[in-house]
Simulated assay, not measured.
Amino acid sequence: MEHLINPKVKSIQLSGIRQFFNMVGDYQDIISLTIGQPDFPTPTHVKEAAKAAIDQDFTTYTNNAGFLELRKAAANFVKQKYHIHYQPESEVIVTVGATEAIDITFRTILTPGSEVLLPAPIYPGYEPLIRLCGATPVFMDTTNSNFKVTADMILANITDKTRCIVLPYPSNPTGVSLTEKEVKEIANVLRGKDILILADEIYSELVYEQTHTSIAQFLPEQTIVINGLSKSHSMTGWRIGLLFAPEGIAKHIYKVHQYSVTCASSVSQKAAYEALSNGMNDAEVMRKEYMKRRDYVYSRLNHNGYQTVLPDGAFYFFVKIPEFVNSSSFDYCLKLVKENGVAVVPGSAFSGYGEGYFRLSYASSMAVLQEGLNRLLK
């Protein structure tokens, strides 16, 4: 009965990250530097709030957009942190993780034939959702610009079919971010055009030498901001995402959200409220530790001749495979697993522009990183 399946669904592939992670799971004694999963526990006060929610029977449906006090806390969080302003009653939606927020945004704004600009290499979660909408992803090669999309690059790729551009910074898989000047330049290029911006800012609290700048600060009327608690508060399994958009856009995304999931988990929402209201700076401890790990990994990679751009956010390195290696990134990474007992993600998982690289996650303890690098550098 497979012939009855939607052809668009049949044509998409499972995430290359997960495929590789699952494949190497059968090998024994593997050091895995693959998944972007914080190794810190969810903060204790957040867990206690969830327990209290259960004991107080806060286990029914909430408002489809999330209970109002949470939306107020979310609006206040991004106002205090990033100087962007949203009305909690009409411009904030609590979603089932950032992934749902991305999905419902694309399903709301894209039509068959639309084009979406994507800076590549890029996280593989966008392209399949775009294709399911009948739209076309247009990749912009950032491998010669330190993995940063530029205003000129965007201008060169805009057509009359361009409906949206994705700005996923800080970036997965490269760890790079954009400066305020670079964000302003992009805003100036897009201002007044019939193009929406999906700003995926899930790593915004994990930025090192600078502070995160959201393009919504300069171009709010065209920007849909995606954020959440997964990385900032080590709450990946709680599945709480946050979507911020102007009311005229948000009211339509809200309809798709309502019919997709009804609402996010009520217990997780209570935990998120605690995280955003009383744990506004919970990410600081993690950020400092990630920065130490980043510096350690960079020193060892650099000392041993690996080429990489120093990340200024998230917790990834995107590393150039040595030129003397005569194999694909997939085969190279599989060989590392079989012969060295260390797993990293092939760059090809992040579009064709990632071929020739691998992604290394440093969201692991220093001891794990030390042993993983010992094996890698063999």
Rank of each mutant, 00 (worst) to 15 (best):
M1H: 10
E2W: 13
N6Q: 11
P7E: 14
P7K: 11
S11A: 15
Q13E: 10
Q13P: 01
L14Y: 07
N22R: 07
M23G: 06
M23C: 06
M23D: 00
Y27L: 08
Y27N: 08
D29K: 08
I35E: 05
I54V: 15
Q56L: 13
F58Q: 08
F58C: 11
A65P: 02
F67P: 05
E69W: 02
F77S: 13
V78D: 01
E89Q: 14
E91V: 15
V92P: 02
V96Q: 07
I102P: 00
T105G: 08
G113K: 00
G125N: 03
E127C: 00
T136K: 09
T142I: 01
T150W: 00
T150R: 01
M153L: 14
N157E: 06
I158A: 03
K161A: 08
V166C: 10
P168M: 04
N172D: 08
G175L: 04
E180D: 15
L190Y: 04
I195P: 04
I195S: 00
L198T: 02
A199R: 02
E201N: 10
E205T: 14
E209L: 14
I226F: 06
N227S: 15
G228Q: 11
K231A: 11
L242W: 05
L242F: 09
L243E: 07
E247A: 13
K251M: 09
H252Y: 14
Y254T: 09
T262L: 07
Q269W: 03
Y273Q: 12
E274M: 12
S277H: 06
N278T: 05
V285A: 12
V285W: 05
R287K: 14
K292S: 11
H303E: 14
Y306H: 07
T308V: 14
G313Q: 04
Y316H: 13
S328K: 03
S329Y: 02
D331L: 13
L336N: 10
L336F: 08
F350M: 01
G352K: 10
Y357G: 07
Q370S: 12
R375A: 07
K378I: 15
